[in-house]
């Protein structure tokens, strides 16, 4: 699959998610200050920033795991409050966390359906429909081209790459509107990375899914993302489309630890008229 051919995002694509002036502190530690992000339908947004910049906190607020101190989330034109991950899932927001949130002692198929189990009534008891879940998981993983020894094996017996694939597969099973991926490629080899990136591209093109991606590899950002938000010390220091930014410039900005405006201003001071 050729990653370079991203069809440009329609200029009039509707905004599907808006987080406005989100702030969050943990005790004395301020994680986010007035962060605002906007996501349009079918858009792939990259969140970049150093460790501790607040990326994970931001997406954990979006997924309902943390609640913001201040700020609003507007989803599908309505203001929403996520008291728990269940609420966010109900809004069609699926998240793959950095730690993958897989349960090592449970089988692959139980992990796939955790929190949305198929059940059937037997003798008045509401029991798990393991056969159905097993079958569905197998079919689904086959469709995605993810190969694991068996859907019955417990997750703690799988390799890091396999686990990551299972976590991604689980998140897109319910056809989410918004997919949030916190370093989805961290444990993947080159081929597996390409596979997951291909999945993201397909979702975006075929189902108009919007994606928020936390990635550290800037190559990959320019392969699949439409826009970049650079978080620094809990604030959005840069919001730029990938078309207007080059990899070199991004690296320069991230290294400087300042926003582009500040860098441009500094450059203008040193060499007036060149910027």
């Amino acid at each position: 699959m050729n990653m370079q051919t991203i069809p440009p995002l329609a200029a009039d694509a509707p905004v599907v998610l808006e987080m406005t002036n989100i702030s969050k502190s943990f005790g004395a530690v301020t994680a986010l200050v007035d962060v605002s992000i906007k996501l349009r339908r079918g858009e792939v947004l990259a969140l970049v920033g150093d460790n501790g910049a607040g990326k994970s906190t931001l997406i954990k607020i979006l997924s309902g795991f943390h609640q913001p101190d201040t700020g609003t989330i507007v989803s599908q034109g309505k203001e929403v409050r996520f008291a728990s991950p269940r609420d966010a899932r109900a809004q069609g927001i699926e998240t793959v966390y950095q730690d993958l949130a897989l349960i090592g002692d449970l089988s692959v198929f139980h992990n796939m359906f955790l929190g949305r189990e198929y059940r059937k009534r037997i003798l008045g008891l509401n029991l798990l429909d393991n056969r159905k879940m097993r079958k569905q998981a197998q079919i689904y993983l086959d469709t995605l081209g993810i190969s694991i020894p068996s859907v019955n094996s417990t997750v703690d017996l799988l390799s890091g790459g396999q686990r990551q694939c299972i976590a991604v597969a689980r998140s897109i099973y319910s056809s989410p509107r918004i997919l949030v991926l916190d370093e989805p490629l961290a444990a993947l080899g080159v081929r597996e990375s390409a596979h997951v990136l291909g999945l993201i591209q397909n979702l975006r093109q075929q189902r108009q899914v919007s994606v928020i991606l936390i990635v550290h590899n800037y190559n990959q950002i320019f392969e699949v993302c439409d826009r970049i938000n650079f978080l620094h010390s809990g604030e959005v220091a840069l919001d730029a489309s990938t078309a207007d930014t080059s990899e070199e410039e991004l690296i320069r900005i991230v290294k400087s630890g300042l926003g582009r405006k500040a860098i441009d201003a500094a450059a203008a001071e040193v060499r007036p008229g060149i910027v």
Binding site: S63, S84, P85, R89, Y97, A101, I103, G104, D105, G115
Partner: peptide
């Protein structure tokens, strides 16, 4: 089982 096996992960996926 999920609660005891990986409490953070279980919470992240919405287990109470």
């Amino acid at each position: 089982i999920a609660t005891g096996s990986n409490i953070i992960g279980a919470r992240e996926i919405g287990v109470r």
